[in-house]
Design a protein around this nucleic acid. Sequence first.
DNA 1: GCCGTTTTCGGCCCGACTGTTTTCAGTCG
Length: 592
Amino acid sequence: MRHITNHEIAGLLNEMAVLYDMEGVPFKPRAYEKVAQNVEALDREVADIYKEGGVEALRREIPNVGEGIARHLEEILKTGTFGELKKYKKKVPVKLDELMGIGGLGPKSIRTLYVKLKIKNVKELERAARANKISKLPHFGAKSQEKILKGIAFSKKHVGRFLLGAVDPIARVIEERLKRVSGVGHVTTAGSYRRRQETIGDIDILVSIRGQATSVSGLATKRIMDAFVHMPEVARVLAHGPTKSMVRLKSGIQCDVRVVPEQSYGAALQYFTGDKTHNVETRKIAIKKGLKLSEYGLFRGKRMVAGRTEEEVYRALGLKWMEPELRTASGEIEAARAGKLPKLIPYGSLRGDLQTQSNWTDGNNSIAEMARAAMAAGLEYIAITDHTRSLAMTGGLDERGLARQGKEIDAFNREFTDDSSQFTVLKGTECNILKDGKLDLADSALKTLDLVCVAVHSHFNLSEREQTERIIRALKHPLVNILFHPTGRKIGKREPYAVDISKIIRAAAQYGVALEINAAPERLDLKDLHIREAVEAGAKLVIDSDAHAAAHFKWLDFGVAQARRGWATRADVLNTLPCEGFLKTLRGLKKR
DNA sequence: GCCGTTTTCGGCCCGACTGTTTTCAGTCG
């Protein structure tokens, strides 16, 4: 049986949902989407569940899977796809993933474009739009055509890059595979992956061979390269040489491996980790000192003066070693020379998570399940922050719903104070900021909560002035503690709404509101530059997973990475504090 | 297609916005 991941299975189910939508089939699309979401959030492989208990186990273990979808899942596990999907694909044979990625295009429009103009992919879509053919279709007009062209331009900017959150698990698996090859010394993924950038262009892995100090060759290097190009993740081998191989992975991303001598390993790491500008700067410093810096080492004439470790290379340049996240030529070199590098917030240092959604609204899991998952992830507290009433699609809570939820949280906490483990569930909300900057819940309800968090979920296209004023009005509210995902962007999908983020940062500092760094791989909002601005303005930060399922707590470190790239220290991030101290500090901000 | 049940069929989060229309279809959250 061919191995197929949960992510791939979810992809197929989502595709089916879109195809049903196209044909106007009622209700089935939502059913498939639900299962896709549940599969994605599962903490074990669908393949394993099936292996253990067959179709019955699939129905039992995966919510919303019934007779029909269980059969499809079985077929997917055996053949990689399923008949119903193939049947519908034949009706509208278009590149769905491509076309659905264009903002404003949905299933119905894609179907019309295919039926009327035989448009199958983005290239043909662009050609038709430029030839002014789309504006003439029924229910399309000049504005829709314009919007499509804008959507294409936006998606082009992001082509070829992958979310860190999507690349991370793949890179880890490959690193592990390479480490198991006999004779292998170090294995490190360098590049934008090591800098923990939001998106990754390709995976660059550096490998050394034990005992090969000054040059690389022979059986050991051949073994590692052979192992690399024959990995099950590989779709196509682009190059297969003795010291460098390149492959295209099934997930679409390119992955390169280089074998370097142990003596040059630090220099190679340095060379392949910094971004272009950082490397230009460091090489200039070398030149000034009469040295030459390359991926093979730091040289004076032919003599190598450093190269085995990064520390050695930086020290020889008169610099302190610096964290990979800082290496973007944005002040880190000056700081390293002056010994004034920030002490970045360490990975794994978060004790709480202030944005989690439960099945009271659009989350997958109960409050108790979320709490247990958070405990397992090493956290000491979480806030349950379900949506509020004006976000109708999630079944947002009104004052009465929130009060009922509060009772469930109280009951859970009572149960757990008896327990030896110390864990607290805080009462929170992700309260909508209404169009005029007022909040979606009455103060009387907000007062019953441990913390009040607010967010924009509607009216994305106000003018910058209106949007900024709207948000600041919410920040001024005396009960508001945290602003969630402050710019609303979704990487590669949606631009941030027009907002003067500097004004928001200053207002947050002034009115004692913490700004969120949302760690969800697709959001990572605030972004690095804004984090740095917030740190400099003295605004406080929190890092949240925005978990909608128990499995999402693993995202927190992506938020920490983002904070690190924004030069944030432990002291800047409030949820590095234990629960009591966190609440005290958060409330203290309002009184200043 | 799934779920829940007053079990084997009826209901399925819904409201706003946009651009197309002149009463609504499609998309988004």
